[in-house]
Nucleic acid binder design. Sequence first.
DNA 1: GTGAAAGCGCTAACAT
DNA 2: ATGTTAGCGCTTTCAC
Lengths: 349, 349
Amino acid sequence: METKKTTIKDIARLTGLSKGTVDRVLHNREGVSKKSYAKVMEVIKDLGYEPNVYASLLAQKKERVIVVLLPKYEPGEFWELTEEGIIEGADSSSNLGVKVAKVDYDQYDIESFRTACSKALALEPSGVVLAPMFRNETLVFVDKLNTLGIPFVYIDTKLETNSYLAYFGMPTYQSGYLCASILADEQQVDEVAMIRIQRDKFGKSDPTINRREGFIDYIAEHSPDCSLHNLFIDPNKPKEIDATLEKFFAEHPGIRYIAMFNSRIYLITSFLAKHPEKNYRVVGFDNLAANIKALKSGLVTCLIAQRPEDQARRAISALTDYLVFGHEPSSRDNFMPMDILTRYNAEYY
Amino acid sequence: METKKTTIKDIARLTGLSKGTVDRVLHNREGVSKKSYAKVMEVIKDLGYEPNVYASLLAQKKERVIVVLLPKYEPGEFWELTEEGIIEGADSSSNLGVKVAKVDYDQYDIESFRTACSKALALEPSGVVLAPMFRNETLVFVDKLNTLGIPFVYIDTKLETNSYLAYFGMPTYQSGYLCASILADEQQVDEVAMIRIQRDKFGKSDPTINRREGFIDYIAEHSPDCSLHNLFIDPNKPKEIDATLEKFFAEHPGIRYIAMFNSRIYLITSFLAKHPEKNYRVVGFDNLAANIKALKSGLVTCLIAQRPEDQARRAISALTDYLVFGHEPSSRDNFMPMDILTRYNAEYY
DNA sequence: GTGAAAGCGCTAACAT
DNA sequence: ATGTTAGCGCTTTCAC
């Protein structure tokens, strides 16, 4: 059926040159006469030659390392999902002679991010994957990468530099818009509580800002008379959360709709469980185990998930493809699907 | 950091045996003394040896072919999505010396399925991927495959034979249940129209039966007084569809809820477009281009999609893994996520 | 500029 | 039962 694959040997024979010269042409190395170059190129076109990547890899035996820069996390937190994807990606890249090394930092400590950047560079990476939490420091870092000619890929959030190889993340504004549409679909929404996290934002980029905007816009467009309430809770003081919520909702007994724009909707489930009579309609984000549990038990109505595993896996895969095969990513900005999870389909994600 | 990869050469040296013998134990080939076997195994454990698959492939230069048995389709139909996954899968398997050949059949013509099966066997496949539409004929076919020792993977639907290597598909019952939950969420549903397709079922397995069951069960559990109406349309007579629908809904003016269990919800959009005043709530299945269009224009409320591309891609990938590396699939029955698509997230799938 | 040859890690055919 | 060897397709060094 398929005619036998052509190899550089075939090309060498047909052009009357040697494998060595053919190889030189293939890799645009210097020291080839125009004539030979043209001859080789012609035969390549004619026979539709495609190199055997694995033979090439075998012969090169080059070791490359991709460094992944990620926030530290506690079990069950968002970044754990990302790490799963890292591991998958590392797994399949190892077949191609690409190792993956993780360097983590404290997302609340800018100094630790600086240290992590140095560590990353010290590993002499062929490529870098990073989730940028500190805007200015990240700019400094990617600038260094550029100088060194090291390609990098953003995940989760991107900065508007023009040098990144690719970005894998969620369309944040739209995710907020979607969130509102789910909350308000076929409903008469007069009041909504947006529960937020107290953050010490030290020049940190807050990815939930865009999301909140999208949410607010949807509500403004579809329920202009709806009033939006902001309520802040502090994840570091879990014991106070219930009290805060009790107080707030006692003061606003008419509110039935609740949204939260970060991954920690699970923080309010204890409160929700105490008020089944209110039949709150609650939408949150991200498929953390604790969130899924709340979803299945009916405390949370919907979760919008963004496949952090896929983001990470695809980032590594794109970078590997680039490093090993020289393939540019087919698109630079890659937005992940926003999965709508309910208690009835969560099982299968 | 990482110590140099161990190779069979290392193992040969450490055991005092030759590469040949090491290779024999690696592949459980006969003709190795217990003693040598044990020695080699020990060193392998100690050094954590992992074979270089690509070197192995290079040396083997074995050509394998996976045959995919699929229904023919018109542009825009469900199976076109499956084919996309086939192509992706074929692409990455080609790197591993595995070719993919498609054999298609007319899903309404049992004889053409028989012919396709013969064609498939004639290609002497190393493995087969199939979407079984004709129950009995499929049983005959997979029986032959078993006799020949050819592994096969079901996609879309599976038969309860115990010999398949893996299955990739949707949890059909649950998808119906989910469908109903979306349709009825926060609603007072008194009447629902289930629009169905006239089928000449010639011993054909109808995958929508389970789905309908799931749907009916949800309604029975949550809205016991709801009445369900069946309405049949004929896709081969598109001109009659509108009239059929007009007549039916004129006779049942109270119905606002519509569900359809196959991939052809687009068939009723022309009707829906004529009755914006009814504000129908409509849920259908599968991300066909025509369906997505209807979703975005607001005629369809929700689509439940099952990632047919992923089914196909993963089926091929699992089979390739099995053929090349000897890896059994980590799970035999693989249910794809059921994606809930609305006009606000459809863009990103 | 170009060719020849060795070698990457593994397999398979042929010896012994 | 085990060792030897040639070779898979490609890269790289060294010689000319």
